[in-house]
Design a protein around this nucleic acid. Sequence first.
DNA 1: TTGTATGCGTTATCAA
DNA 2: TTGATAACGCATACAA
Lengths: 344, 344
Amino acid sequence: MAPRNKVTLKKIAELLKVTPATVSKALHDSSDISDAMRKKVKKTADKLGYRPNILARTLIQHRSFLLGVIIPDLRISFFSESSRGIYERARKRNYETILMVHDEKHEIEKENLEFLSDLHVDGILLNPAPGKFNYDVYDKLVEEGIQIVCYDRKLDDYNFPSVTIDDRKASYILTCEMLRLRRRKILFLGPNKGISVARERYLGYLDALSAYKVALNPDYVIPSDLSQTHSYEKMKSALDRGIEPDAVVCVGALVAYGAGNAILDSGLSIPDDIILGEFGDNDINSRLGVPFLTINQNPYKIGQAAVDLLVQNIEAKEKVVSEHIIIETKLLRREYGIRRHRSV
Amino acid sequence: MAPRNKVTLKKIAELLKVTPATVSKALHDSSDISDAMRKKVKKTADKLGYRPNILARTLIQHRSFLLGVIIPDLRISFFSESSRGIYERARKRNYETILMVHDEKHEIEKENLEFLSDLHVDGILLNPAPGKFNYDVYDKLVEEGIQIVCYDRKLDDYNFPSVTIDDRKASYILTCEMLRLRRRKILFLGPNKGISVARERYLGYLDALSAYKVALNPDYVIPSDLSQTHSYEKMKSALDRGIEPDAVVCVGALVAYGAGNAILDSGLSIPDDIILGEFGDNDINSRLGVPFLTINQNPYKIGQAAVDLLVQNIEAKEKVVSEHIIIETKLLRREYGIRRHRSV
DNA sequence: TTGTATGCGTTATCAA
DNA sequence: TTGATAACGCATACAA
């Protein structure tokens, strides 16, 4: 393939009748270059629209100023919003971000991780897929010196720095609100083990039940994966076999969509027959739909904090900070009792 | 920063007591290498988990096997779905994809484009932001030899190959369906000039009106940008000042969400009072919400076709194919009259 | 204050 | 069939 027609240090150097080294130093404000030279170089670099070749720079500096971001799904509004926070904060700190989606599949997560390693990113903001499949890859990344920060989801067996909410507490608050609204047949839908958030949310659910002295009904704990279709099927079949909850705690956003669809398709109403609660998908409020109880996770803030933590670790000279930041949440009842959806 | 601890050609070479050149050739099945050598090299490369350094390879080959994908917004399901098609197809053809989001802002689109150029991607799948702001950047990319293919949206003044739907026809069909359902006060919400899709959809709207001999009411053409908030405000204020449509054609997915919210917040019902129609956001069907008329755009297929076209152009030895592929659409009325949303 | 030399990990062109 | 050498674009230690 033909070489890209780009301005290089060499071209600038030829133009100014100096060496590439001089140009490089001038552009980096190196102390041992004359002011006159510096200005002259910068001016022509500007004029020619010079942009340093990331590839070459990374090759020699072992430093790319690239951050990888791995998320499960684009359709979860938490991730679109946190991605924005990440992008903006990273740019401010002179990093570019590269977004990858694993679709809850560990094979794809592995591809993503390897690609980011191939690209020599300086760090990765990670939302792992469920399961303990990629430990060998994580180990390799650590060995390569790529910093990893988890956000939203954590990895059980690694002590990577993280930015999350207090899932157990949030789930407790959410379930308590349902109980306060006099619901007693509260169903828990989604994974309740494996992935950290799910486990924590399940514990919070149990906490709330026992706080209100409601006995746990095992029939009301319905495992499903994090996909919309699977959650739909699980919810639908539960309703079909006569399980009649008056509230549902959904572990994930797509779970909530699946459950909601199933409930409505069964001719039941939300929130009169069943109250739906979930974590962090603000779109369920801002988009069309039925009333929801939602835990607001501050995705934008989480994204920013995650970048700060990651960059801090990347740029740390000495030892690495392994902090676990908890972002405050808020229970929202937006749109409750405001909207009216007429029967068709 | 410390060098990454990675297996390189050199290390493999040292281990096998040959030169890096030999290893390189063996791994590339070069004709002038012995079978024995080839096998030996490949075996140890495998064992050590060797992965070629993309940066170094790109630097010398002027070829990265990277594709950039630029989209407006993650929350539009069309893009999450087409992105999946793009990713999968690209991988099959041995390319990696890098996703960038411009959020309908041309400044960010510019940053995205420049970053992709810096990374030396071989080609870009582009969904431009509205406006004619980045022509200088497009020119630069073309000059650098980076192939560009547009999908969904096209660029007016460039003849980049493209994969789109027939927006005018789709809009015609959508509007006709509203007319067939005996609606006559049909509002057009969104941009109707500037961006190509918007213009085409406006024309289709006009086509339908005149096919049904309905006079255009200028009050029913309400310009807004593509954001949810702006569309909400425009729709709300129209309703507040007494404009009473019985159907709304929304140019974009976020426009539809904004309009829908405004309508519901005004105490009106969908679809009894107002039918809502839009293009391509399948999530509005698959998620919770009110009934919608939707043009299905086959996002997955569009993504795949776009990759094929782009890669074809990248790998073309001779001259470049500038094709404009039209993907078929289908009008959907999913969920119509099925769901019941009780009043609260 | 500037220039020279070297290397990052590849590949490509020669020579052996 | 394999090895030596140069080059991609940049940065840095060292010499001038």
